[in-house]
Design a protein around this nucleic acid. Sequence first.
DNA 1: AGGCACTCGTGCACACATTCACAAAGCCAG
DNA 2: CTGGCTTTGTGAATGTGTGCACGAGTGCCT
Lengths: 241, 241
Amino acid sequence: MCARVPNVADGMAPDRNRRRIPDATVSRLPVYLRILGEQAEAGVDNISSEGLAELAGVNAAKVRKDLSYLGSYGTRGVGYEVAYLVYQIRRELGLTHDWPVVIVGAGNLGQALAGYGGFGERGFPVAGIVDIDTTKVGTVLGGTRVRHIDELPQIVQTRRVNIGVIATPGAAAQDAADRLVKAGVTSILNFAPIVLSVPRAIEVRKVDLAVELQILSYHEQRRAGGAIHAVQSGTGRSATA
Amino acid sequence: MCARVPNVADGMAPDRNRRRIPDATVSRLPVYLRILGEQAEAGVDNISSEGLAELAGVNAAKVRKDLSYLGSYGTRGVGYEVAYLVYQIRRELGLTHDWPVVIVGAGNLGQALAGYGGFGERGFPVAGIVDIDTTKVGTVLGGTRVRHIDELPQIVQTRRVNIGVIATPGAAAQDAADRLVKAGVTSILNFAPIVLSVPRAIEVRKVDLAVELQILSYHEQRRAGGAIHAVQSGTGRSATA
DNA sequence: AGGCACTCGTGCACACATTCACAAAGCCAG
DNA sequence: CTGGCTTTGTGAATGTGTGCACGAGTGCCT
């Protein structure tokens, strides 16, 4: 196949940022990206919307529409070139360079996150871990020394950190958020079970285990309350998002 | 105020389960519930939709519509009785009794989850932790001894477990899901970064840290690509969901 | 060269979610 | 008992997301 013509609208598209990608699509692009990475690793060069859809557990039309927001990078009759699509999605998601993150809270969860390692591999190296508890300062987690929360501004500035992760108990989370914002962080991933109050310009995403479990509980309860059922041996299999 | 008349449609509403609550609402009810619990603890008896909305970081009309799916439990001109609302939400979410969970994977994340403790408090006691690695079996995490994954069916049956939590590496997650399903679990909370393939009847929810970070990355990248900005000192504060 | 099989990109209709706006309902003061 | 204030509950309008269906390219085979 002929080489792509990446001259126009490739490196830094002039009006690319004008185009807004729907939230629902943005939340699926990372999934496509991971699958495409796996496929590339497995030696797959091209993939159809249907193939990608099956692996991602979604509708093929949705895949095509999602990808169309990036531009028309598919080839009719053939599909999408995996490597090129990976590049385009990475560019759109801003994954062409690393985004160092700082973790606030060195408790159970903070330790798990720091020790996870998957962060760094996926372009989010841990620039630092801080805690307010001085007895925790100095211990080493996943290769990173825990520092005191007062050092947050320094870490954020010297390491150019834009993303903060809150892994504190609920009671300490708002203070953590305030400190992160004051230090200059503009995006926050919050694991604490509270609603944060932050300036409008700050992007916050919440991960709340209790909420997830309670949603599952709702469906379980609903199942139990509905018609008597004995659906145990699953027959059909369907990918689930 | 006159006493409520809980006779009709209280204990087990006959056609309550006929009424389907929208997904978006179900995902917000746990947030309301936590806030209401805090308010009750603080001695607040009544709360208006606007007050609850502010604490939850959402629109007041949305709160009213969400709550209206539970029934008309508010009093015009007054608001909602906190204790009663807590009861109704708990009932609707199926939180009137405990839902024991089993954790698969005793690595970093599994340990953090088991040690978290917040599970049990919120009605999701850890019925067991299992791992495929025999060297991990026998160690104790958060008061629970790690058992071998082959014991999964026994744990699920004796403890009446409906909810499984997958905290394994991605490569092991599908196997974990298969084992959970075979053991009789009907809801799964998946922390592994893969799309699980399970029978249709199984409810799956996914929590993927990499995806969340990449979504934040998108917004950061967008911010950087847009007009030059120096929005640092936040002026307005707004609760964010 | 022409026809055929395949797959993308997208217009359109439908479903779901959010927000506004207001009538209905309750409380309180006098 | 009446009038005024507050707040709910919900119809209607708007916005967002999903999925079908099909035209339009593309490559392969004869």
